[in-house]
């Protein structure tokens, strides 16, 4: 694949996007996007994470030329989406949230038509379709009508359709919503593989925390039409006040002593205890554990177990969006 138009410009750039929708008579317009800004480097899987209605799909629709922002600017591969929609369309693949295959066409026919529409010759489209059917394990079902496909198969076909013309940017709008865990795991494996092999820039939206954690190299948490925080999944988690350390003492009567010991260790915060369990936060859990064990041992407290938990994206969401992800979703 060739390099982006100029090395300095990101593959995807959205600047201060605002998008409102009418909300029915009398009501104020719904502000789906409220100054959203993102920048995605070429060749990266970038995740937009947020609950339904956060503005993820609106962002995808604007960047993929489907809808227009009320204000703000958006560029794909350095091309302005509002001014040169046609040029953008030839370089992108869109896997919309809804199933996007024609139910009355076979998997193969869907792929060939999508390729031809993107300017592939019939022969080239057929060859590419065969390749993708094979890659997505749809070979056996290739000539069955898409309406007979299971949810997981249909979703794989949708992604394959989006890949027909080897787009340089792929939009995956909630690729695994509604899939069972097994189909989701399979889809994750495929997305991970194709991002590495095709060297595409992928913009992924999801409301699954594990999905963003698993697939995205960088992610932005979106809430109420704005990016609340952006970074790599581990950076975001590092920005929380460290890891959680759980210490279980063998004898609940020694918990008070243990707590006093822990509070004296440098870098340990927020020590709480209940029964035989003590909880504390530390900057780097793995580094803190030896110190904790040594101090407790020196004080003669017998330890049953020590566990270190990395903060989850849910914790990150809670911190930056001000509410629990589960509640927002």
């Amino acid at each position: 694949m060739s390099a982006p138009p100029s090395p300095s410009s990101p593959a995807l750039a959205a600047e201060d996007l605002v998008k409102t929708y009418p909300a029915g008579r009398g009501a104020d317009r719904v502000r789906a996007l409220d100054g959203l800004t993102i920048s995605v480097d070429a060749g990266m899987v970038f995740g937009l994470l947020g609950p339904n209605g956060a503005g993820k799909s609106s962002t995808v629709k604007i960047l993929s030329t489907l809808s227009r922002a009320d204000s703000g600017r958006a560029h794909v591969l350095g091309i302005d989406v509002a001014r040169h929609a046609d040029a953008v369309r030839a370089s992108i693949g869109l896997v919309a949230q809804k199933p996007s295959s024609d139910p009355m066409g076979s998997g193969r026919e869907n792929l060939v038509l999508a390729g031809q529409i993107q300017g592939l010759s019939r022969a080239a489209a057929r060859a590419r379709a065969a390749e993708l059917l094979d890659r997505f394990n749809l070979g056996d079902a290739a000539d069955r009508l898409a309406k007979t496909y299971s949810g997981g198969m249909a979703r794989k076909l949708d992604v394959a359709i989006g890949l027909m013309h080897r787009p340089r940017v792929l939009f995956l709008d909630e690729p695994t919503t509604g899939l069972d865990p097994e189909a989701r795991a399979e889809m994750w494996a495929e997305i991970g593989r194709l991002a590495a092999e095709e060297q595409m820039t992928v913009l992924l939206t999801t409301h699954y925390l594990e999905e963003a954690d698993h697939l995205a190299q960088r992610l932005a948490i979106v809430d109420r039409g704005r990016v609340v925080i952006e970074g790599t999944p581990s950076e975001l988690k590092d920005q929380l006040r460290g890891d959680a350390v759980h210490v279980e003492v063998s004898d609940a009567t020694s918990a008070g002593t243990a707590r006093a010991v822990l509070e004296r260790i440098a870098g340990i915060r927020e020590v709480t205890s209940s029964g035989a369990t003590l909880r504390a936060r530390v900057d780097r859990g793995a580094r803190a554990v030896p110190a904790v064990l040594a101090a407790l041992d020196a004080a003669g407290v017998e330890v049953a177990s020590v566990t270190v938990a990395r903060p989850s994206l849910d914790d990150v969401y809670l911190r930056y969006a001000g509410r629990s992800f589960e509640v927002a979703a």
Partner: peptide, 22 residues
């Protein structure tokens, strides 16, 4: 109805791709 008659072609069309003249 396209709002523009874009003369800008997508840069860097990958090799080995048969394209109908667009």
């Amino acid at each position: 109805s396209a709002p523009t008659t874009a003369t800008l072609t997508p840069p860097g069309t990958p090799d080995g791709r048969t394209r109908v003249p667009q």
